[in-house]
Design a protein around this nucleic acid. Structure first.
Lengths: 364, 364
DNA sequence: TGGTTGTGTGTAAACGTTTCCAGTATGGTT
DNA sequence: AACCATACTGGAAACGTTTACACACAACCA
């Protein structure tokens, strides 16, 4: 029953050596029927359970996968985590989870802790793959690792994600098709999320192709009052805006609420599109038009990749995967109201402004 | 740089023994300025990092807290996890997370794994504290542990939660105040969640006090079609129902969507109240009337309790805490439409029926 | 009979730490 | 000069495992 029963205690009780106990319990070597019986009985009576610390120290493997994500507050990460957990579990692996809060310094700390705990592999999402010290460290180690959500890092890092740029490009097409030519991209953490930047780039690309003015970039935070203020400022300055593209679903929902607070109706006055495809987006009214990404599947595949690497040679084959996504139509996106024929005139550009309205900025 | 640098390597490079290296790096004993300097230099040059496996094996403590929750899909658990993480982190502890999927057998497995990994303490939510084998095991061990979400287990288990019954009682009062006398309690996993049952009990208590008919119990699953079907059946059988009380916010949102699909408007045709207070409930329209529980704070306090127990004597002082909650009004709850004066006549009871409509059932 | 094969077992080394203990200087007293 | 603290250091044991190795014993074959 007690957890401090060791293999030694079992050996004493079974009247044999600890080597025999180990061999029997692990089926890792020859043993007579007699000792098998005695050992198993003794282990059962004492409620013996292996101390994985000793085991891992000896075997140099912990059967633990370290995970670093920005937060659990965004369900899309929670999904991925569940995917990792499920897959790991199936193969007898554990998961050691850390949240880095979109902070590169915290990412490094988390990695350091994980390494100290001797995890066998690491699955992570970083703020900016291009400048990530964490990623550089990882590359220098001979430890399988894999990025999730980060994609197209173009640096040979193993990754499982979706093509954010392509997905956002499609959103752009859809918006144009619906008659939205003056679109604003709303982002939290633009500087600490390469996904945000890729999505903005994809949108810009589609809009440019359609000959529309370059989408404005509105950088906000989640605080409801601030968001409302920012949106109010936006509508005052860019009244011809007919659609918002939010960098993720949570933000999209917050925007819809903010617009509502300003007396605007979605989608009648303004359309909103999100990104991620969290399940809640489908519960609300209006339902959220968004890009659905396979969060859980990402976790699953990343975990599977790590486990394969561990069970075979020991090094991940860098077999990056771009998973497919779909655009999910929703009530938050409607064709532009036909009453006002505006939208084609190009806008005066401002390089900076209060209210976080930032123009033409591509990266931090 | 490499993670397989050991204290031995540092010792060689610094020209001293491993004992000295350990003393210097841990500041755990006397050391000369000269060796301090050499050791620190050597450790830095080699990129040495302690192997926590060796350390833990020796020190008999892992500075790791095991956590078992039902799922991450419900944001309320994600919140708690973040709270645990943050607090643990502040004190240099790690978190080992497992999801048990509302399955008592899985709960046991998870605990077993955690024990194997020699966690220093366990924070968990179980399906049913009264019958939980996991909890029984835990009690027999001398390992600090603490329940979260489970509350009023009445068995002396340390717990940090909210009084579900009292909270649901308040919901009942609010419903009555708003003129809702025919209420249905909608639950997922009624049999695998003591919280659900406590909330139902609280509602029943309040309704009985007000002289209202006993609330019906509608047990459903999350699948949209099934939920819609169940709701349709409910409305057909109990047309006088004016309000739904869902066992948690996610389910409440799903119900609102289901009702919408059936052509009903919330709150005009029927009111809906949730439980948990997830932040999304405040973003949607209508906003969700609900009980707000301090998920993150629960995690924080549970973690703090465990760490205190570990840093002091070693056994949790069983200092259970019932945290406070608040009722948050929301657009999903409105006074009963005055047009139809129904609602007072008592209903014919059925003991069972298709469509999962179950009457007067108090526990599994 | 002597050798080979095989099966079953125990001893002991290793994994990376911490820490007790005994030792060696050094310095300051008597 | 002998003594004793004091400050530092290294050897070695311990934590709980796995596993290489050596040994003992039986059975089999020539």
């Amino acid at each position: 029953m007690n957890s401090k029963v060791t293999i030694k205690d079992v050996a004493v009780r079974a009247g044999c050596s600890i080597a025999t106990v180990s061999r029997v319990l692990n089926k890792s070597g020859p043993s007579s029927a007699a000792s098998r019986e005695k050992v198993i009985a003794a282990a059962g009576e004492l409620g013996f359970q292996f101390n994985e610390l000793g085991r891992s120290l000896q075997s140099q493997r912990t059967r633990t996968i370290g995970v670093i994500v920005p937060t659990l507050a965004n369900p899309v990460f929670a999904d991925a985590i569940e995917g990792i957990q499920a897959t790991a579990d199936d193969s007898g692996y554990q998961m050691l989870l850390n949240c880095a809060n979109y902070d590169p310094a915290r990412e490094e700390e988390c990695l350091s802790t994980l390494l100290g705990k001797q995890v066998d592999a690491v699955i992570l999402t970083v703020s900016d793959p291009a400048t990530s010290q964490t990623l550089a460290t990882l590359r220098g180690l001979e430890l399988p690792y894999c990025l999730i959500f980060n994609q197209n890092t173009g640096d040979g890092h193993p990754e499982v994600g979706v093509d954010n740029t392509a997905a956002a490009d499609i959103v752009g097409d859809v918006l144009v098709t619906h008659g939205h030519h003056n679109v604003v991209f709303v982002a939290v953490r633009f500087s600490t999320s390469d996904r945000s930047r890729q999505r903005y780039a994809g949108l810009c690309q589609a809009m440019a192709r359609a000959g529309c003015p370059e989408p404005q970039l509105l950088e906000v935070d989640y605080e409801p009052e601030n968001l409302e203020l920012a949106l109010a400022g936006l509508l005052a300055r860019e009244p011809q805006t007919t659609a918002l593209f939010a960098s993720n679903d949570m933000l999209a929902l917050a925007c819809i609420r903010g617009l509502r607070a300003l007396g605007k109706t979605v989608p009648d006055d303004i359309s909103v599109v999100g990104f991620d495809g969290i399940s809640i987006g489908d519960l609300v009214d209006p339902s959220l038009a968004t890009i659905v990404t396979p969060g859980r599947e990402m976790g699953r595949q990343a975990a599977a990749m790590m486990i394969t690497a561990l069970e075979t040679n020991g090094r991940a084959p860098g077999n990056s995967r771009a998973l497919s996504f779909t655009f999910r139509p929703g009530g938050s996106l409607a064709p532009r109201a036909t009453g006002t024929p505006a939208g084609e005139r190009s806008l005066p550009r401002r390089s900076t402004s209060p209210l976080h309205l930032i123009t033409n900025r591509r990266s931090e």
